[in-house]
Design a protein around this nucleic acid. Structure first.
Length: 635
DNA sequence: TATCAGCCG
DNA sequence: GGCGGCTGATA
């Protein structure tokens, strides 16, 4: 709605420039003792210091490091016929990511070309092949994810007290506010206490800051970009006069940032570029000021000069449709061009949320750096098919390939965060341009995630969408197959029946307990199951030596030699927990063993009829014993 | 739950 | 500009 209610509008009158910085009126806030001593740092904290740190030509550097190639050698990463990464030496030859690999080679005959890792059906892990075939192989970015994790871990270890948000495979935001504050008080102890003669107590402004030596801390984004080098000295002088405690905060953050970057370079071989500023968006924008292997610092007073001439479509989230719409609506391209648009007008045209854009254009970004917990994440593997699937029975082939990747990645994620579990698995199929079919199903808990387990679940979905009947025509031409996990979370919350399982029995299991765990395996009796859909519930007793399975109704006991007195409680607990998981795995395998063999007896396997809202329980045939074995034993 | 739309590098 | 990947909105 566009009617103005008459309430005081905080934005009124800020639209039009009437003086140099009137669009940027928060660059030199008064900084008080209260700010310095605050325990919680809000988004408007004048001492906030944020960095965006990204890895230079990441995939290319990964290969350069892996192959121990001289970093000065021009190197590109190839994917099929195109390039997905170009290192800086190669860029000097005018090679860009858009080039085909053979064109790149023409530009630089010495170019080192590395094809991204791929794998085909049957491979347990991706490898680097001379000539991968797009018809049989799928690319894997796994190596890059692992290297990314190494860098992330070095951030975490090297920057205690910071908040770190991994923004993508090669980027992380780092909030230095807390450690910077500690360092400030350590370095300037006189700030610790409000002076007795301070006029407003805690709300008194801090004494003027000392001059800052920026030597070795990175590249300062200039206060006046248009000036030429002759004015450098003038600017330096000016800098000192205009220095604020915000700048001091940035300088300390830059110190820390520079140290980890050097450390990562020394230990892992990656060069990183960083931007430091008062918020995420400005940090991101500053990081690209000078690359590679440098860090740029954007002081508050440099914000207008840096932002005004910036094409706004370079700004995160304005690179797409919204940016284009803005550009077309007002026929402009820089941030400065947009500053004359009032908030009301923007909101009228682009909705309430465009206050976000309005603020971004003025260098304001209230978003927080938040460590992305493993939760609410998804994991996808997909493949475009140059030759569409011709027969229904070919589905398993691709599903297996994608399952291998998901298995690898989920297990790896579990090394870092034990207990991770995806709520559901999704199979997505695409035909040509747009038409999409997808099907998802809950992905039941299992201690061990194998390729077979995922492939079986994927096959089941495929069966429901397509069937495995080669004698019937395919319902559509399938040119894209994707398999993904969604709702990946650590199981510590929510799932009562397996809560604490990893803590009790898996992660913290000590070496000497593993023998005990082994033994448990043989104790599980696998007889038959009914069709109850309830889950296995623990029975409630002090130190239980058994549990009752809600699914099959059976009572499962730990072995007598473990159940007796004289065996420590925690051993019993572990034994029982392990037993329960074994049993759940057993049900799981049972469920999945009702799947078809690839292509065999295909005619029997039609797509399932459309799902009814309420499934009527019906008894299924007894699964064959070796159907279980297939999923438990095979690797 | 299925689909779509958008963004990123 | 294709490919692979991720997230959030919507009904």
């Amino acid at each position: 709605m566009s009617t103005f209610t008459g309430l005081a509008n905080p934005w009124k009158g800020k639209g039009k420039a009437n003086g140099l910085e009137s669009d940027f009126d928060d660059l030199t806030p008064a900084i008080t003792y209260r700010h310095l001593h605050a325990q919680h740092f809000g988004p408007k904290d004048p001492l906030r210091a944020i960095a965006l740190c990204d890895s230079d030509a990441f995939y290319a550097t990964c290969e350069q490091v892996r192959l121990k190639v001289d970093p000065a050698v021009p190197l590109v990463v190839r994917q099929w016929d195109s390039l997905i990464a170009v290192n800086y030496p190669a860029r000097k030859f005018g090679i860009s990511r858009m080039d085909r690999w053979d064109d790149a080679l023409k530009k630089c005959p010495e170019l080192k070309i590395v094809h991204v890792a791929t794998y085909k059906e049957g491979d347990d892990e991706p490898g680097y092949w001379e000539k991968p075939d797009t018809r049989t192989h799928k690319v894997s970015l796994d190596h890059y994810r692992r290297e990314s994790a190494k860098i992330y871990n070095m951030f975490k270890e090297g920057l205690p007290g910071t908040e770190i948000e991994k923004a993508s495979i090669d980027e992380a935001f780092i909030d230095f506010t807390r450690p910077v504050r500690e360092k400030l008080l350590e370095r300037f102890p006189y700030l610790a206490k409000v002076p007795d003669d301070a006029p407003d107590g805690l709300d008194s402004t801090l004494p003027p800051p000392p001059p800052i030596s920026w030597d070795g801390l990175g590249t300062l984004i200039p206060l006046h970009p248009a000036r030429d080098n002759d004015d450098a000295e003038v600017e330096l002088l000016e800098d000192d006069l205009l220095t604020t405690w915000s700048d001091v905060a940035l300088s300390i953050a830059a110190e820390m940032m520079g140290r980890v970057r050097a450390d990562i370079h020394a230990k892992l071989g990656y060069t990183l570029s960083a931007g430091l500023a008062r918020n995420k968006f400005l940090a991101k924008l500053s990081a690209s000021y000078r690359k590679p292997n440098d860090q740029s610092i954007l002081r508050n007073l440099a914000i207008p000069g840096y932002l005004r001439p910036m094409p706004f479509q370079k700004i995160r989230f304005l690179g797409g449709k919204l940016g284009k719409a803005l550009a077309e609506e007002y026929d402009v391209k820089t941030v400065g061009d947009l500053l004359s648009i009032t908030l009301e007008e923007m909101q009228r045209k682009f909705g309430e949320e465009s206050i976000w854009v309005y603020e971004i254009l003025r260098g304001i970004d209230r978003t927080d750096v938040k460590e992305k917990s493993a939760t609410t994440k998804s994991m996808a593997a997909s493949k475009n098919l140059t030759q569409p699937v011709a027969k229904a029975s070919e589905g398993s082939h691709w599903i297996r390939i994608l399952a291998a990747e998901l298995a690898l990645r989920l297990n790896e994620a579990r090394d870092q965060t034990p207990g991770l579990w995806p709520k559901s698995i999704v199979l997505g199929l695409r035909q040509g341009w747009q038409i999409y079919r997808s099907k998802q199903a809950p992905f039941p808990f299992s201690r061990t995630v194998t390729i077979d387990l995922i492939a079986a679940a994927g096959d089941k979905l495929w069966k429901e969408l397509i069937g495995f009947d080669d004698s019937r025509p395919l319902p559509m031409k399938i040119t894209h197959v994707g398999l993904s996990f969604t709702g990946i979370a650590s199981n510590e919350s929510g799932q009562q029946n397996i809560e604490g399982f990893f803590k009790d029995s898996d992660v913290s299991v000590k070496a000497e307990d593993r023998g005990t765990k082994r033994k448990l395996h043989s104790i599980v009796e696998e007889k038959h199951a009914s069709e109850e859909i309830t889950e296995c519930q623990p029975s409630r007793s002090a130190i239980a030596t058994h549990f009752d399975c809600g699914r099959c109704g059976r009572r499962i006991h730990i072995s007598d030699d473990l159940a007796g007195i004289g065996i420590e409680d925690y051993i019993k607990q572990q034994a029982l927990a392990a037993l329960r998981t074994e049993h759940e795995d057993f049900h799981l395998a049972l469920d999945l063993s009702k799947l078809p063999e690839d292509g065999v007896n295909a005619a029997k396997f039609r797509p399932d009829p459309p799902q009814k809202k309420f499934k009527k329980p019906k008894s299924k045939p007894e699964p064959k014993p070796d159907g279980i074995a297939k999923f438990l034993v095979k690797k």
